[in-house]
């Protein structure tokens, strides 16, 4: 009797959780599929008339196709930043783990600071201006690399610890040192954690709103999150287009999540636990 009551309580809890976590996504999707007047009701209902394709077309045509520019910029930003992050953080993670000592201690403190300290905004803009890369995509790429570095180094460092040193020594005897040892022997072995780093940091950078807002203002440089934010004031009567934009921005992480669920979860929780 008590067991039965407990199970039914659990069932209720699961149902509530399911509703709370799934309904907002269904709402996004149905609103994105409605026509303009129907979407203005803000109701949780099926569209009487599905206008998915029209809405996609219209949202891409809005403001001279700014969404195309935004997707292109976000793609470049994400791919280039993640590529740089993987290479430079793998190198740091390797040396930091293999060569303990005063230098490694300093590096470890810096990694922890990077996780905790909120970046100083205006001084960063000032530095970017001195380097003549403020309001440029390369500037924002460097910002994303710098701000995501600590997390990636943590993941790499933990993984390097699991690679036996004997491997380095064997490679050394074969005459490999430094760069060639790292890129020929170690880096290929880091593949699992490299995939995790690629997935988690792509999601972070693609979803980033604050840094583009500060460091890459302006329409010609729009990223998807900034465009979505600006659509909020522009489309405040066309909820169907606003939500179509939301759906489009949610699809890339959804695809990654469907295919790499375990990898992403592993990356986020292990990085979290060590931080």
């Amino acid at each position: 009797m008590r067991a039965a009551r407990r199970t039914s309580l659990e069932v209720v809890a699961i149902l509530v959780a399911a509703v709370v976590f799934i309904v907002p996504f269904i709402f996004m999707f149905v609103t994105a599929s409605k026509n303009e007047s129907e979407s203005a009701d803000l109701a949780f209902s099926l569209p009487t008339q599905w206008t998915v394709l029209d809405n996609i077309k219209e949202v891409f045509e809005a403001r001279d196709g700014i969404l195309f520019t935004a997707f292109r910029n976000s793609a470049i930003l994400t791919v280039v930043s993640v590529t740089i992050l993987v290479v430079v953080c793998a190198m740091v993670g390797y040396v930091i783990q293999r060569r303990p000592g005063r230098v490694a201690n300093v590096a470890n403190v810096l990694v922890l600071s990077g996780l905790i300290i909120p970046p100083a905004v205006v001084p960063t803009i000032w530095v970017l201006q001195q380097l003549h890369i403020f309001k440029t995509l390369p500037g924002l790429i460097l910002v994303e690399v710098a701000f995501n570095m600590a997390f990636c180094v943590l993941l790499f460092r933990a993984f390097v610890a699991a690679i036996p040193r004997e491997l380095d020594e064997a490679a050394m005897i074969d005459g490999c040192t430094g760069l060639s040892l790292f890129f020929r022997v170690i880096f290929p072995l880091l593949r699992p954690v490299t995939i995790t780093v690629i997935l988690t940091s792509s999601v972070f950078i693609f979803n980033d709103f604050v840094n583009p807002l500060y460091f890459l203002p302006g329409d010609e440089n729009a990223t998807v999150q900034l465009t979505l934010y600006n659509f909020l004031s522009q489309f405040n009567t066309q909820y169907n287009l606003l939500f179509m934009n939301i759906v489009l921005v949610t699809i890339p992480p959804l695809i990654l999540f469907i295919f790499f669920n375990r990898k992403i979860v592993a990356g986020m929780t292990s990085g979290a636990v060590k931080g």
Partner: peptide, 12 residues
């Protein structure tokens, strides 16, 4: 990168 874009702004 970290020094220029993160540490220097934090210090200044």
């Amino acid at each position: 990168v970290y020094g220029l874009i993160f540490l220097v702004p934090t210090v200044i």
